[in-house]
């Protein structure tokens, strides 16, 4: 079976901390250039750039997943990934309703714009997207499973907004994998499959970390099976 390279943690211009140059089109083109077969767009608590990302990935012949990086009430970051844009957008609506009502101040935090395939701005998001939603990590896990998505605690060994920084340990959960920054991971990973991603906020950082998975096809099902089998190899181990 072939191995495919993936980067499942990418921010676009919708994330206030994401560079404005990170349009869905530019992200897809850069991922293609850097040999990424499967890419996921994971802006903070929102999937509004996923429609353009889907089209951009189609044009660049990169397989795509759609989702978001949720900030739980513990202020832990969690990757939620879906097979379709519709699933991601619906989850995004549920999250936005539960997001703390803090208006974004672009001059302080950065812009939160969603765009079309030609980088035309379609709208801006009012609430500050990196704030926390009212759901706990467990509840978000359940919401994702109920929608058939993949649930992966993000950068669990990071100094901020991680399982390690917020809780000090990795609680048991229905995780499809855990995302790590370093190998070996400083936090006990509890036997869950590990992946690593770039968490790129700038085009230059795309695929600065990646992992490979073994599958017939680089799609949602192929990835899900590879994660379950542990048929994964990390760039940070090479």
């Amino acid at each position: 079976m072939p191995w495919f390279r993936a980067d499942l943690h990418l921010h676009s211009c919708l994330s206030p901390c994401g560079d404005l140059e990170c349009s869905p089109s530019a992200i897809a083109a850069t991922a293609k250039e850097r040999g990424i077969a499967l890419a996921a767009l994971t802006d903070h608590n929102s999937a509004l750039n996923c429609p353009a990302f889907a089209e951009a990935c189609r044009r660049n012949r990169v397989a795509a997943l759609f989702g978001m990086e949720v900030t739980s009430r513990e202020e832990v970051h969690l990757l939620c990934l879906f097979e379709t844009v519709a699933q991601a957008l619906e989850m995004g609506q549920v999250l936005y309703a539960a997001l703390a009502n803090i208006p974004n101040r672009p001059e302080t935090f950065g812009d939160q714009v969603y765009v079309d395939i030609d980088e035309v701005i379609l709208g801006t998001v009012d609430k500050h997207l990196t704030a926390a939603v009212s759901y706990s990590a467990d509840e978000i896990n359940d919401l994702v499973l109920a929608r058939g998505g993949l649930f992966i605690p993000a950068h669990i060994d990071r100094a901020v907004t991680s399982m390690q920084s917020q809780l000090g340990f990795l609680p048991e959960g229905n995780y499809h994998a855990v995302e790590v920054l370093r190998s070996p991971c400083s936090l006990d990973t509890g036997g869950y499959t590990q992946i690593c991603d770039s968490d790129a906020h700038f085009l230059d950082d795309i695929a600065s970390r990646w992992f490979e998975f073994e599958a017939d096809v680089p799609d949602f099902s192929g990835l899900k099976e590879a994660l379950a089998r542990g048929a994964i190899r990390l760039s940070i181990d090479w």
Partner: peptide, 23 residues
């Protein structure tokens, strides 16, 4: 920050926090 609580809270103390979840 629960990692801070774990590292620095004394035994038999009362914890004052807004972290309302089972962790």
């Amino acid at each position: 920050l629960l990692s801070d609580v774990m590292a620095n809270a004394a035994e038999n103390c009362v914890l004052v926090t807004i972290q309302a979840h089972k962790n």
